[in-house]
Design a protein around this nucleic acid. Structure first.
Length: 102
DNA sequence: ATTAAGGCATGAA
DNA sequence: GTTCATGCCTTAA
């Protein structure tokens, strides 16, 4: 596993309950150039237990089209279960976007 | 809203 | 080693 992947997974696993992160943000936080790569990495994640990829969403708050772990429905389900609000099938980013402190 | 183009890590051939 | 396809994307037109 490469360093990038580690960072991506690490950060993803650090997302607090009730918050989400966009691919773009996650990308820049982990030092990856393109958000696409992040998606790719998350897609072949092997440890869903520690990697809550359902907390990672698109820039506009919508969910990924091919959620690798049970489908987009499951993802939404999980998010709601964690207290994340949906509006128009999108996450309320303004409220649930994870802002890193420092 | 839909389409097109950008850009790159990963894996198979 | 390199080329090609693919992807949980983003932004701009």
């Amino acid at each position: 596993m490469t360093d990038k992947q580690k960072r991506v997974y690490k950060i993803t696993s650090l997302i607090p309950l009730g918050f989400v992160l966009t691919y773009k943000k996650l990308a820049q936080l982990s030092g990856v150039k393109n958000p696409r790569v992040v998606g790719n990495i998350l897609h072949k994640n092997t440890d869903p237990q520690n990697i809550p990829c359902h907390r990672v969403v698109h820039s506009d708050g919508s969910l990924a089209k091919n959620y690798a772990f049970g489908g987009i429905k499951k993802q939404e389900e999980k998010l709601e279960k964690e207290g994340i609000e949906f509006v128009n099938g999108k996450v309320k980013l303004s409220k649930h976007l994870w802002k890193i402190k420092n």
